[in-house]
Amino acid sequence: AIERGSKVKILRKESYWYGDVGTVASIDKSGIIYPVIVRFNKVNYNGFSGSAGGLNTNNFAEHELEVV
């Protein structure tokens, strides 16, 4: 089962992080479509409006993740 702290591989082909491994930061139990927040070591794009980097978290559905 996917739980907080799990290392997961991203299976969503259109994702910037496809094939990468991230760490589960949290799981939303409220029934939303993409409840699993995954944190990565790298950012997906340069930040804007003065922020240092881009996003390094993204929401995924459990079926888009594979525990490694």
Score class of each variant (00 low, 15 high):
residue 48 F to G: 15
residue 3 E to V: 11
residue 55 L to T: 14
residue 3 E to K: 10
residue 6 S to W: 10
residue 2 I to E: 01
residue 46 N to T: 05
residue 10 I to A: 01
residue 3 E to P: 06
residue 12 R to G: 02
residue 32 I to F: 07
residue 66 E to W: 06
residue 24 V to E: 01
residue 38 V to Q: 00
residue 22 G to W: 05
residue 27 I to M: 06
residue 9 K to F: 01
residue 20 D to W: 09
residue 19 G to A: 06
residue 19 G to H: 05
residue 11 L to P: 03
residue 53 G to A: 12
residue 45 Y to E: 15
residue 16 Y to H: 05
residue 42 K to W: 06
residue 56 N to A: 08
residue 58 N to C: 15
residue 47 G to E: 15
residue 66 E to I: 07
residue 15 S to Y: 04
residue 22 G to T: 02
residue 33 I to G: 12
residue 21 V to T: 07
residue 16 Y to T: 04
residue 38 V to K: 00
residue 56 N to P: 05
residue 3 E to N: 09
residue 45 Y to S: 15
residue 30 S to C: 12
residue 48 F to V: 14
residue 41 N to G: 10
residue 34 Y to Q: 08
residue 41 N to S: 12
residue 25 A to S: 08
residue 52 A to R: 03
residue 51 S to A: 10
residue 38 V to L: 00
residue 6 S to Y: 10
residue 40 F to D: 03
residue 45 Y to P: 15
residue 21 V to I: 13
residue 36 V to L: 04
residue 54 G to W: 07
residue 23 T to A: 04
residue 1 A to P: 11
residue 54 G to Y: 07
residue 31 G to N: 14
residue 4 R to N: 10
residue 63 H to I: 07
residue 52 A to K: 11
residue 18 Y to W: 04
residue 47 G to P: 12
residue 43 V to Y: 14
residue 1 A to Q: 12
residue 6 S to H: 09
residue 14 E to N: 11
residue 46 N to I: 05
residue 57 T to I: 06
residue 13 K to R: 10
residue 32 I to Y: 07
residue 4 R to K: 13
residue 4 R to P: 14
residue 16 Y to D: 06
residue 48 F to M: 14
residue 50 G to C: 15
residue 11 L to M: 07
residue 39 R to A: 09
residue 61 A to I: 02
residue 43 V to H: 12
residue 34 Y to S: 08
residue 49 S to G: 13
residue 46 N to K: 03
residue 56 N to S: 10
residue 63 H to M: 06
residue 28 D to K: 05
residue 14 E to Y: 04
residue 8 V to Q: 01
residue 24 V to Y: 00
residue 64 E to S: 02
residue 49 S to C: 15
residue 64 E to K: 02
residue 35 P to S: 07
residue 58 N to W: 13
residue 26 S to H: 13
residue 25 A to V: 14
residue 29 K to H: 11
residue 11 L to W: 03
residue 56 N to M: 07
residue 59 N to R: 09
residue 61 A to K: 05
residue 10 I to P: 01
residue 49 S to R: 02
residue 48 F to L: 14
residue 16 Y to C: 13
residue 66 E to D: 04
residue 44 N to Y: 15
residue 53 G to S: 11
residue 49 S to M: 15
residue 52 A to C: 15
residue 41 N to F: 08
residue 35 P to L: 15
residue 44 N to D: 15
residue 27 I to V: 09
residue 41 N to M: 09
residue 5 G to N: 05
residue 20 D to H: 10
residue 2 I to R: 01
residue 10 I to N: 02
residue 66 E to P: 01
residue 16 Y to E: 08
residue 51 S to T: 12
residue 40 F to W: 00
residue 13 K to L: 12
residue 61 A to P: 02
residue 39 R to M: 13
residue 62 E to F: 14
residue 20 D to R: 10
residue 37 I to D: 04
residue 31 G to C: 15
residue 43 V to S: 08
residue 23 T to Y: 09
residue 9 K to H: 04
residue 27 I to Q: 01
residue 32 I to A: 11
residue 64 E to I: 03
residue 64 E to H: 02
residue 45 Y to W: 09
residue 5 G to W: 02
residue 21 V to L: 07
residue 40 F to P: 03
residue 57 T to G: 07
residue 21 V to C: 11
residue 14 E to K: 04
residue 5 G to P: 02
residue 68 V to H: 03
residue 53 G to H: 10
residue 35 P to F: 14
residue 32 I to D: 13
residue 38 V to M: 00
residue 54 G to Q: 07
residue 39 R to S: 11
residue 51 S to C: 15
residue 16 Y to L: 05
residue 40 F to S: 03
residue 19 G to I: 13
residue 18 Y to I: 02
residue 32 I to G: 11
residue 1 A to C: 15
residue 20 D to Y: 11
residue 18 Y to F: 12
residue 36 V to S: 00
residue 60 F to M: 00
residue 49 S to E: 15
residue 34 Y to A: 09
residue 4 R to T: 12
residue 30 S to M: 05
residue 8 V to M: 00
residue 54 G to C: 15
residue 68 V to Q: 08
residue 19 G to N: 09
residue 21 V to M: 05
residue 62 E to T: 10
residue 10 I to M: 01
residue 34 Y to T: 06
residue 30 S to G: 10
residue 28 D to L: 09
residue 20 D to T: 12
residue 59 N to G: 10
residue 14 E to W: 05
residue 57 T to P: 04
residue 23 T to P: 01
residue 64 E to P: 01
residue 57 T to M: 12
residue 38 V to S: 00
residue 39 R to P: 00
residue 51 S to W: 04
residue 49 S to Y: 14
residue 29 K to E: 11
residue 34 Y to H: 12
residue 27 I to R: 01
residue 60 F to I: 03
residue 53 G to P: 11
residue 28 D to M: 08
residue 63 H to F: 13
residue 27 I to P: 01
residue 7 K to V: 11
residue 64 E to F: 03
residue 42 K to P: 11
residue 9 K to T: 04
residue 26 S to L: 08
residue 22 G to K: 01
residue 24 V to P: 00
residue 28 D to N: 07
residue 33 I to C: 14
residue 63 H to T: 08
residue 11 L to K: 06
residue 1 A to F: 07
residue 47 G to T: 05
residue 53 G to K: 08
residue 45 Y to M: 15
residue 3 E to A: 11
residue 30 S to W: 05
residue 44 N to I: 14
residue 68 V to W: 04
residue 56 N to C: 15
residue 25 A to K: 08
residue 12 R to D: 05
residue 28 D to A: 07
residue 58 N to M: 14
residue 48 F to C: 15
residue 18 Y to L: 01
residue 41 N to Y: 06
residue 30 S to R: 08
residue 27 I to C: 07
residue 12 R to W: 05
residue 12 R to P: 03
residue 52 A to F: 12
residue 37 I to N: 08
residue 64 E to Y: 03
residue 30 S to D: 07
residue 40 F to E: 04
residue 55 L to M: 13
residue 13 K to Q: 12
residue 20 D to Q: 06
residue 60 F to P: 01
residue 49 S to N: 11
residue 16 Y to V: 07
residue 26 S to V: 08
residue 24 V to D: 00
residue 25 A to E: 14
residue 59 N to A: 13
residue 46 N to H: 13
residue 13 K to Y: 10
residue 51 S to R: 01
residue 46 N to F: 09
residue 63 H to W: 13
residue 1 A to K: 13
residue 21 V to S: 02
residue 38 V to W: 00
residue 26 S to Y: 11
residue 25 A to Y: 07
residue 59 N to V: 07
residue 26 S to A: 12
residue 24 V to L: 01
residue 62 E to M: 12
residue 35 P to M: 11
residue 37 I to M: 13
residue 53 G to I: 10
